[in-house]
Structure formats: C-alpha cells, structure tokens
Amino acid sequence: MRPHRVSAAPRTAVSALAALALLTGCGAAGGLKSAGDAPSAVEPKSLWPELPPASSAPYDYGEGETARIPGIRVTGGDVRRLDPVTVAQAGLKAKTDRDSGLDELPDGTARQIEACRTAPDDCPVLPPYYRDLTGDGRDELVLGIRMPDRQLAVRVYMPDKGRLTRIMSTYDAVISVELAGRDLIMRAPSVIPGYEYRTAWSWDDRQRAMLPTRDEILRTPEHRKAPKPSPDSTASSAGTR
C-alpha cells in the first residue's frame, strides 16, 4: 500500500499544535508520560547466503491449474441456473491448461458421477454453494465430490464470457470446508496429535485462478487452551499429599 502524503503546511500546523499540547500538559494531572525508548528494529538475517537459489519447483501441487468445461453455457453469467450434476459430468471431459494429475478423480468416483441420474443414492456430488470469490460481482459455483477414504474433492467454477471455467481443483481428507469473505478455507487433520492443517485459497488476478495463499499448521480448537483441572481432581490431589 502506498502511504498517504501530507503537504508541508498541514504538517507544520500539526507539529505546532502537538508542541503546544506538550508544553501546556506538563505537570498537569493526567498529562502525557513517556513510555520509554522504543525497541530497535532487528534486520532479518539471511542464512547460508552462498547457496544458489532454486530455479524450479520440485513438485506440482496444481496451483493455478484451470480448465474450460465443455458443453456448458452460463446464461446471463448466473451459475445458480446450472445443474451441479451436469457440471460435474461435463468436468470429466475437461482438459486442463497443464497436467498436474491432481484434477483426475478415481475411476470408481467418475463412474458414480456418470450414473448420478440412474443411481442418485450413490451420487458423490454434494449440494452446491455460491459465493463471489473473484470480486467481479458474480457468484462462483463451489462443488464438493465425495471420494474414497473420506476424502473430498473441492472445485470452484467461474462464469467466463458465457462459458464455465474451473478455477480451483484440489482434494484432501478434510475436517471442514468454509467460505470466509472471498476465501475458501480447508481444514485437514495432521499426523501430529492436537494439530490440524488449514489452507486458505484466494483468487489471483494474474493467474486467473484460486491459489493457496495461506497454509498453516495450528492447534485444534479443543487443544488451543489447556484444560482447567476440575474441583474434584484438585481435591483428590490435595488429599494425597
């Protein structure tokens, strides 16, 4: 963000008023008091500066991967008019702009999606959600697809000049999926007891895709505060002294 600039005249007037306030407030009850010297800023220290920087990422996590969904028209840019099952079925034929392999669904899940009309009880497509995640004033379509081993595929679709473009596709064994403002937040379990992973996906204008902008490992809600001992446990421990 660019700092606001103040002209010289207002700066002079503000300085004069501040000086007058300090002079008249000295010794008065409730006057200004010094909080002491401010701590000095510590410059970041670069570790192992002689190491050459990496030129390419060792893994592809599917960030920025998009796909135009074939055969889908978005009338008036309103994704609420779309049938989510039709979108999921058309998405099986979509070609991504690059192939990370993360867009592919297991064969069994793909067959279930294709059979959603004839076997609706086994259809893995969950009810859709809608939210303006790109900031253009139009809602995006958010779909969840159940996968084996309690994993969930999460996909976001954007209306794009009368067509439909998938701007996010990922999957994980999730604790929950949340919409917060223009972010989509996924919580996943960690192998460390009492902790979980939390990833926030946000729209990026340059990539024209949702990117994982924050990836954290946090204490789970039930472990964020140490449990308080109950009165019974306190009494029993006091009795054993």
Rank of each mutant, 00 (worst) to 15 (best):
R5W: 09
V6I: 11
V6G: 05
S7H: 07
S7Y: 08
A19S: 11
L20Q: 05
T24F: 05
G27L: 01
A28E: 14
L32I: 08
A35T: 15
G36I: 02
V42Q: 08
P44N: 06
S46C: 10
W48D: 11
L51T: 03
P53V: 06
A54Q: 14
Y61V: 12
Y61L: 15
I69N: 01
I72V: 14
R73H: 09
G77R: 00
P84G: 02
V85K: 03
T86E: 14
A88F: 04
A90D: 07
G91L: 01
K93C: 06
A94W: 00
T96H: 03
R98F: 10
D99L: 03
S100M: 00
S100V: 06
D103N: 09
G108H: 00
C116D: 00
R117T: 11
A119F: 06
D122R: 11
P124G: 04
V125D: 08
L126K: 15
P128R: 03
R131M: 14
L133I: 12
D136I: 09
L141Q: 06
L143A: 05
L143Q: 07
L143E: 04
G144E: 13
I145N: 05
M147H: 02
L152K: 11
A153K: 10
V156K: 00
Y157M: 08
M158Y: 12
P159M: 07
G162N: 04
S169L: 04
A173Y: 12
A173C: 13
E178M: 05
L179K: 10
A180Q: 11
G181E: 02
R182K: 10
L184S: 05
L184F: 07
I185Y: 08
R187T: 10
A188V: 10
P189Q: 07
P189D: 03
E196N: 04
Y197I: 02
W201Q: 01
D204T: 05
A209Q: 06
T213N: 11
L218A: 15
T220Y: 04
P221L: 09
E222D: 15
R224L: 07
R224C: 06
K225F: 13
A226Q: 14
A226F: 11
P227G: 02
S230Q: 08
S230R: 12
